[in-house]
């Protein structure tokens, strides 16, 4: 550790702009093992880690950086996943410059922050690859059930936590696939869809039930859902586009960002021929 004095900050290589603008693949290459360990060892293990304070999840970042530097990756994954339901997603799309990395002590001292997000992604990708992430098998099954409306990040995180605790969990979503904005909002070049479906597949294998194409108010009232479950969680997100307030702003030719992104993401998903939850129902 403390290698920030002699070792420069490095970020994963980016694909060439000309090449990446022609497809929807992710633009950052993943850290290789030696580079992840080398970069993790730049952490100063400072006494008051502001990175933890500035992470909404309070991730124990210095702890898992130290474990990566010592090549104790399985333990690093255990620590990282204890506070985060999808570290490989956060590693890719969090604005680290405004959160953990922006408040890193060695960043403040002018040495350049530890590349926390890339190491986080590396840990969890390794965990998937090595088979350390196994479907949940709760020690004690409870009869009580929870209905979750919305299969985005909030709903999925709650689903995993409740299922881990042995509750019966059913996640309703108005779209044909689970994932919410992770699947239909964020483009592939920032977050490849296979990363999201791997998580939703894992939840399904853990016993979480998904009900896609299900709209509360159309297919059931909230009241009916309450009657079916012991508790209900609403995690529907915010989807209404703010309007362009100027003459012509309401014209049909003016497209809402989310409609545009959903259409593009849907095309990519349909081309890849496989969704999650819904598509796996035929197994």
């Amino acid at each position: 550790m403390l290698k920030f004095i002699s070792r420069e900050r490095e970020t994963p290589a980016k694909r060439d702009p000309g090449a990446r603008a022609r497809d929807f693949g992710e633009i950052y290459k993943a850290f290789a093992k030696d580079r992840a360990a080398a970069q993790a060892s730049r952490c100063s293990q400072c006494g008051v880690p502001f990175c933890v304070d500035h992470c909404p999840l309070g991730n124990d970042i210095p702890d898992w950086l130290k474990l990566v530097a010592e090549d104790r990756l399985e333990e690093a994954y255990a620590v990282s996943s204890a506070t985060n339901n999808m570290p490989e997603v956060c590693g890719r799309i969090c604005p680290q410059d405004r959160l953990c990395e922006g408040s890193c002590v060695i960043e403040q001292s002018g040495h350049g922050t530890v590349t926390i997000g890339s190491v986080e992604q590396y840990i969890t990708e390794t965990a998937w690859e090595k088979g350390w992430i196994k479907p949940l098998r709760p020690a004690h099954e409870r009869t009580q059930s929870v209905g979750i409306i919305g299969a985005g990040p909030a709903g999925l995180a709650a689903a995993e936590e409740l299922r881990r605790d042995g509750f019966q969990v059913k996640v309703y979503d108005r779209h044909d696939r689970a994932g919410g904005l992770l699947i239909y909002g964020i483009p592939n070049f920032k977050l490849e869809k296979q990363v999201v479906t791997r998580r939703t597949d894992y939840l399904e294998d853990s016993g979480v039930e998904f009900a896609p194409n299900f709209e509360i108010g159309r297919d059931a009232t909230l009241n009916e859902l309450q009657a079916q479950h012991d508790a209900v969680l609403i995690a529907t997100g915010v989807y209404k586009a703010r309007d362009l307030v100027c003459p012509g702003g309401g014209n049909q030719g003016v497209i809402a960002a989310l409609d545009y992104l959903i259409a593009s993401n849907r095309k990519g998903l349909d081309a890849s021929g496989r969704g999650c939850g819904d598509a796996r129902r035929g197994r």
Partner: peptide, 14 residues
């Protein structure tokens, strides 16, 4: 942010 949604989901689940 996604990370805040995850946090909220965990708080609600607890």
């Amino acid at each position: 942010l996604v990370v805040w949604a995850i946090r909220d989901g965990r708080v609600a689940a607890a």
